[in-house]
Design a protein around this nucleic acid. Structure first.
Lengths: 143, 143
DNA sequence: CTGTGTGCAAACTCTTTGCATAAGT
DNA sequence: ACTTATGCAAAGAGTTTGCACACAG
């Protein structure tokens, strides 16, 4: 084992272990998708994009399974779901605290490191509620 | 004329004038919808909700027209579109600078006054881009 | 073996579109 | 009259669902 950054998501074995740790059976599909998702740094994917990527990688997975898997990963804390454009859902492999630039005319997302941005002056959460998460989306257009 | 707050959106005449100012013909449907939308303070509506509300108010408007109208109002700066939950679109009658609490399990939005929140530490927009708008959504769950 | 996961196709929700009719100016 | 808006129904995108078959443990 050499150095590692945040996680060590390269070998299928690690992927299997990680899935099992999340309470998910490491099936062929889940392992393949997890490898695609977590094997190349932080990324933002839509269901359709992941489906195509899997197809290109020679992995046969139905779209229904893609959706199931994305949601299971999300519920297990492996992915975070982003509501950006009201039509399509995006899933972010970076589940740590960070925010996003969104380039409107390209539908492209860029991470903003979590410790860069500070949000001040929020009012109290209403009675009986607590803040689960704050999403900051910085929308960009051509200059 | 008595006191006024930000706009004076009550009488049909005002609505018509406002529509015309926005470059939109004050048709029966647009006037009715604008009256519903702007006649009762700041609100957040989905297309379907506005459609039902119009029906209850005895205004006959097709859903297609609701969508057309919402988008026209948005493009004219009368409404702001909010991407909150990735399925449905919400439109906000408050187009000034402010942010939102979102109560996840109720799908309910609450305004946070714009001057309350300050976002610090944003990186520069990438080359050739400029920030058009920053959305802050504070997601709430049961305490 | 037993239970969970997967694939497929159909169903569903939200939204958009095409085109004939209606309405605004 | 001329032009733009509206309604309707059909089409479209994205997502979910139901159920038979497949696979992991």
């Amino acid at each position: 084992m050499t150095r590692h950054h945040d996680a060590a998501p390269l070998l299928p074995t690690n992927v299997s272990t990680r899935l099992r740790a999340a309470g998910l059976r490491p099936t062929r599909q889940r392992v393949s998708l997890a490898t695609l998702l977590f094997g190349q740094g932080d990324r933002h994917v839509s269901a359709e994009a992941l489906h195509e990527e899997a197809a290109k990688a020679g992995v046969r997975v139905s779209l229904a399974t893609i959706y199931n898997t994305l949601h299971q990963f999300q519920q297990s804390g492996l992915l975070r779901e982003l509501a950006i454009d009201g039509q399509r859902s995006y899933f972010d492999t970076n589940t740590s605290n960070h925010n996003h630039f969104y380039i409107e005319h390209q539908g492209k997302l860029i991470d903003i490191p979590g410790d860069a941005v500070r949000v001040d002056g929020l009012p109290e959460a209403p009675e009986g509620m607590r803040i689960s998460h704050i999403d900051v989306v910085v929308r960009l257009v051509k200059a």
